[in-house]
Design a protein around this nucleic acid. Structure first.
Lengths: 227, 227
DNA sequence: GTCTATATGACGATAGAC
DNA sequence: GTCTATCGTCATATAGAC
């Protein structure tokens, strides 16, 4: 009886696990294709070809091509969210300078972005005509914005950012810097590695500019004027 | 006899003029479509439909869809090149501060970019799978880089930028700022006008950061450290 | 230069057998 | 869940009449 329960239940679990594994494989292959051909170059047929199955079989896992893009968007947003979360987890105890803390955070994000160009394009540009992510897929992206806001607020409370700075504006300026580096690197020299990229290597200087502006004056900024 | 020459020659000129006008009209319609549907959403059929002709007729003017993209790339690059050239033409006599000069230059470029999102995406991102501009189409883009380098060199010679700054690095940092603003504005709030955009309105602060860093110390920068 | 007609093919998606 | 078969649509591109 008890074994009957397990033999009834376990295959179901296995099937669901197997199904999820297949979905993951589909998404892996899709990312591979987008990386090679560009995000808008993804096609159901090419995914099936590389998986050794026929195109209609994919409709068991995704209702449409747009649903596949949606899953890719959500996956990418989750990945980058967790990446940033992990890279900035110790921000409330990190006793280095503002500049060192910010540079590490920036480098972590930019590295991930240039090493995952397909996700980056899908998440931060608009390369697919007609595609807009669903609210569910967009949720982790919203959370990322909130997380960055939290992190900056912590820095400000610790006295590492000017007390009179508006965190929303700080965040906007910060994202301009970061996305500028990513955008320039990916569109002008996508094959250069992060460590020696013509634009990624400008991060120290750019972060220094930023910190000189937003540093707390008490912490030694010699150029404290309000804007 | 003389009139025979003119009646022979003039129609040819008119035909060539008419042909060029038609080509311009095709490109106008193509930009319209790319603006609405995304750059990768351009299709020959839709261009023909909006022009009230049949798709095959377009092949009289463009050998392929890629040739059309190529013409659009070149046109966009020429437009932005001339726009920047005009906006910075008086840089060797402009007697305002570095910050004022740079802010105007930045605003001019960013305004053009957000008001011409189709060209911007085609020129500065890579939204069309398989398309790469020809050397001819790319030429004005190369010239734009050279022009910006010239302008920055003039500023440095006039003592408005640190004498010890490497202009190539200054230019890279500058393009990061500019492209960051454009990228963030277009991907997060493409419909906001330049004057009230969440990111375009950050330009004064961002340019100030930049100038505080690269300003000539003699001109009153209180934060002169070398990087 | 524009048209009709057509070649050719890819694509997304569905129906239904197994 | 996978397949074959197929639909419908759209696309780029060419041939040849007018």
């Amino acid at each position: 009886m008890l074994s009957a329960v397990t033999t009834d239940a376990m295959p179901l679990d296995r099937r669901r696990r197997r199904r999820l594994e297949t979905i993951e494989e589909v998404l892996d292959v899709a990312v591979e294709i987008m990386t090679e051909q560009g995000v808008a170059g993804l096609s159901i047929g090419e995914v099936a070809r590389r998986m050794g199955i026929r195109p209609p079989s994919l409709y068991v896992y995704f209702a449409s091509k747009e649903a596949m893009y949606d899953a890719l968007f959500e996956r990418g947003a989750r990945l980058v969210l967790e990446h940033v979360r992990a890279a900035t987890a110790d921000i409330d105890t990190d006793d280095r300078t503002t500049e060192a803390i910010m540079l590490d955070a920036a480098a972590s994000f930019v590295r991930w972005s240039v090493e995952h160009p397909a996700y980056t394009q899908l998440l931060f540009w608009r390369p697919v005509p007609g595609f807009a992510p669903s609210a569910e897929a967009y949720a982790p992206a919203v959370e990322l914005v909130a997380l960055m806001n939290d992190r900056l607020t912590v820095l400000q409370r610790r006295g590492l950012l000017r007390a009179d700075a508006d965190i929303d504006l700080v965040q906007r300026d910060w994202t301009v810097l970061i996305s500028g580096v990513v955008s320039q690197q990916l569109s002008n020299a996508p094959d250069e590695p992060f460590d020696s990229g013509a634009f990624t290597s400008r991060l120290p200087t750019l972060v220094a500019m930023f910190c000189d502006h937003y540093n707390s004056p008490a912490r030694g900024n010699r150029n404290a004027r309000k804007r």
